[in-house]
Simulated scan of single mutants.
Amino acid sequence: MDHMEIVRASGRAADQMRAVRLERDVLKHALGSCVVEFGDTKVLCAATIEDGLPAWRRASRCGWVTAEYAMLPASTNRRTNREVGKRKGRSMEIERLIGRSLRTVVNLRALGEYTVTVDCDVIQADGGTRTASITGAWVAMHDALMAWVEAGKIARLPITGQVAAVSMGVVDGCELLDLDYSEDSNAEIDMNLVATDSGEIVELQGTGERTPFDRQRLNRLLDLGDAGIAKLVALQNEVTGFRD
């Protein structure tokens, strides 16, 4: 069945993303901040910059970009316990993904001996929290580094490009873009794509949850993902003026 002909329960076409919104400058004390919404999924991203580097990084004389991720207690329909003392494996995996993704588009040598931390807190979860986090984290990081330039801390913006992320999957045999929770929890194939504004893949996470898939299906899912990434980086550019 052609994925273009499918109409989902939400009313979206198979190749249509949820409504995406990026609201900047939402926090007073963060150098860069953004609330990102993918439909009913909402994530607060806040970027801060500190002098110095982690001890293991000091000899490099290059900067560092890292991230932290957590789901707030009321972000789902059942209260999520705060991660105090013992971190959840899922949260650690996602924050490492966010950090890796951001570092691919930063010239760490040009950044200098500073550490950028982007905190991604899920306010409301309805699927795609990691993809929304990466997309919003780039905006928060961009604004923080622009503030650092304006403060005379660094000579120029060390960002080399944009990075965003989107999910794809197969539900009831249909190939879909940007799955919400009801779709993701019933997916036969679940996939996340992280890519740059030039179309290069940073990371591809794909699993046949209930069925294996062939190269042809993978290619079709990637085509869906590429179209989603293009829309997201266009929106990032619209709100930040990065490519102007």
Rank of each mutant, 00 (worst) to 15 (best):
R12H: 05
I159F: 01
D214Q: 05
A47S: 12
S185K: 10
I6A: 07
V106L: 09
T211V: 13
P54Q: 09
A230R: 15
E23D: 13
L97R: 01
R79W: 08
V166Q: 00
R210H: 14
V118F: 06
V43T: 07
C34W: 06
G173F: 03
L204F: 08
A230F: 07
T48K: 03
N192G: 03
D172S: 12
A140W: 06
K153T: 06
E238Q: 15
G85T: 12
D184L: 03
P212V: 09
M141H: 05
M168S: 03
G199V: 09
E183N: 12
E5W: 02
R103C: 06
T135C: 12
T135K: 14
M146E: 11
R8F: 00
I98P: 12
H142M: 09
A67W: 12
T240I: 03
G89D: 02
D172R: 11
D244R: 15
R130L: 06
L72R: 13
M141A: 14
V139T: 09
W138M: 01
L157G: 04
I201K: 04
V239E: 01
R100D: 11
I159S: 00
R18N: 04
G89R: 00
V105Y: 13
E203T: 10
A227R: 15
M17Y: 01
R215Y: 09
L72S: 11
G206N: 04
H3G: 02
L102S: 11
G208V: 10
W64Y: 15
R18G: 01
R61S: 14
A132S: 15
R12N: 05
I123L: 15
C120T: 05
I6K: 08
G127P: 03
E5D: 14
D51E: 10
G127K: 02
E5A: 14
R109H: 14
D143K: 11
W148P: 00
I159K: 07
Y181P: 07
V171C: 09
G112V: 03
D223C: 09
V139G: 08
R243P: 00
L177A: 08
R90G: 11
Q124C: 05
R220V: 13
V239T: 06
R58M: 10
L177C: 09
R79F: 01
L97W: 02
S91C: 12
V122P: 08
S182L: 02
L176M: 00
V171Q: 02
E175I: 05
T104G: 00
G206F: 04
L218S: 01
N237T: 10
Q124N: 08
L31N: 11
L232H: 04
L108P: 05
Q236R: 11
A55W: 05
D121F: 10
T115A: 11
S33V: 07
H142K: 06
W148R: 05
S198R: 15
R217S: 10
A59Y: 02
R61T: 13
D143R: 12
T117F: 06
R210T: 02
S133G: 13
